[in-house]
Computed example of a mutant assay.
Amino acid sequence: MSNKERIMQLIDNVPDNKLVFVVDMLESLKAYAGESIEPDAWDLQMIEEAKMLNDGERVTFDELCDELGITI
């Protein structure tokens, strides 16, 4: 399933009275479409720290929620 298909699936489950929030979010993202922002010093530091902590293991969102005891 593509990201666009997944988004449409999620939007189908949002009540009409809440869609205004989705529209606002998408409108704000549209302004950044295709824009590339260079990382600053803080970003680069966070990237380096993440590289040191990353053991290469991947976890799905659902697995992470289960691990944290969060119900979606």
Rank of each mutant, 00 (worst) to 15 (best):
E27C: 15
M1Q: 05
Q45E: 12
T71A: 14
K51V: 09
V23D: 02
G56D: 02
T60C: 12
L19T: 01
F21I: 10
I47M: 04
D24C: 09
F21W: 09
N13C: 08
S28W: 02
M8D: 07
I37N: 10
L29I: 00
R6M: 07
I37Y: 07
L26I: 01
G34P: 02
L64Q: 13
E63L: 01
D62I: 09
I70F: 06
G56V: 06
L19W: 01
S2T: 02
V22S: 04
D40L: 00
S36G: 02
L68E: 08
G56C: 03
V23L: 11
E49Y: 07
R58C: 10
R58A: 08
D43R: 15
K18S: 13
S28F: 03
N54M: 01
D12K: 12
E63V: 05
P15T: 07
M46V: 06
S28P: 10
N54T: 12
D43A: 12
E48D: 07
E63F: 00
E67T: 09
F61M: 00
E57T: 08
S2K: 00
N3D: 01
L26E: 03
E38H: 08
R6V: 08
G69I: 04
I72L: 14
A31Y: 08
N3F: 00
I11F: 15
D55K: 04
F61Q: 02
L10H: 02
I72V: 03
G56M: 05
L44H: 03
L44W: 12
Q9A: 06
I70P: 14
D62F: 05
Q45L: 11
L64I: 09
L10Q: 03
I72Y: 11
I70A: 07
R58G: 03
E5R: 14
Y32L: 06
L10W: 04
K30S: 08
E63A: 07
I11N: 13
D12W: 06
F21V: 14
T60V: 01
Y32M: 08
L44R: 07
Y32V: 07
E57K: 13
F21E: 06
L19N: 07
P39M: 01
E67F: 14
K18M: 11
I7V: 14
E38N: 12
E67R: 13
A50N: 15
C65G: 04
P39C: 05
T71R: 12
N17W: 13
L29P: 00
I70C: 04
Q45N: 11
D43E: 11
D16C: 00
K51I: 06
N54L: 04
K18F: 10
I37H: 07
S2R: 01
E57Y: 10
M1V: 09
K18L: 09
L64A: 05
K30A: 02
M25T: 12
I7T: 01
N13E: 15
C65A: 10
D62C: 05
C65W: 04
S28D: 15
D12N: 08
K51S: 13
E27F: 13
D24T: 02
N17C: 10
D55Q: 02
D55I: 01
L44D: 11
L68D: 04
K51N: 03
T71H: 11
N54V: 04
M1F: 03
Y32F: 13
Y32D: 15
D66P: 06
I47A: 02
V59H: 08
